[in-house]
Write a protein that binds this DNA or RNA. Structure first.
Length: 140
DNA sequence: GCCAACGTTGGC
DNA sequence: GCCAACGTTGGC
C-alpha cells in the first residue's frame, strides 16, 4: 500500500466537509496539474492519504482512504483530468503543522517541505509513521 | 497582499 | 524544441 498526501484549501473543501460525508466518499476533483494527476492514477483502492489544509491552517488534519481509482473528473469536459474518490477515516487528535514538519529533521526530505506546490504527493512509510505519532495516532 | 517557485502556453 | 510571457499555488 502506498501512502499519499492530498492538499485542500479549507475554504473550498475542508476536513469538516469530508467528515460530514463519511462514511460516504467524495470525488477529489479539480486537480489541474499533470504531476498531481499522475500520482492519483497510481492510487489503488485501500491506499491511505493525509488530508492537508493549505493556506490558512497549513497542517495535516486527518486521514482518508481511496475508495475508487482514477476516473474522469466530473467537474470538467476536458478528458485530460482524472480524479479518485476518498472517504474520511480518522481525524488527528492533534493536527501536525507544516512548521513542525520543517522543524523535524527526519522529515527534511518530505515533498511537502520541499515542493510546496504539488497538491497530490507520495509520502514515505517512515514519514507516515513519524507524522502519525506526532499527531497522536499510532501509525495506522 | 506580496512574491518565489513552478507550470503552462504559444510564438518563433 | 526553445524560451519569454503569463498564470497559479501557497508560504510568509
Amino acid at each position: 500500500m502506498t501512502r499519499w498526501l492530498m492538499k485542500s484549501e479549507p475554504d473550498v473543501w475542508s476536513w469538516d466537509d469530508q467528515m460530514a460525508k463519511a462514511p460516504d466518499s467524495e470525488e477529489w476533483d479539480g486537480i489541474r496539474n499533470y504531476q498531481a494527476r499522475n500520482n492519483m492514477r497510481k492510487m489503488r483502492i485501500g491506499d491511505r492519504a493525509f488530508f492537508y489544509h493549505s493556506q490558512t491552517e497549513k497542517a495535516i488534519v486527518g486521514i482518508v482512504e481511496v475508495t475508487a481509482e482514477s476516473h474522469p473528473d466530473s467537474t470538467t469536459d476536458d478528458d485530460r483530468w482524472d480524479c479518485v474518490d476518498v472517504r474520511a477515516v480518522k481525524a488527528f487528535p492533534k493536527p501536525v503543522t507544516l512548521a513542525e514538519c520543517k522543524a523535524t529533521e527526519q522529515l527534511n526530505d518530505m515533498v511537502l517541505v520541499n515542493n510546496s506546490r504539488l497538491s497530490v504527493q507520495p509520502v514515505r512509510d517512515y514519514e507516515w509513521e513519524i507524522i502519525c505519532r506526532m499527531g497522536g495516532l499510532k501509525g495506522d
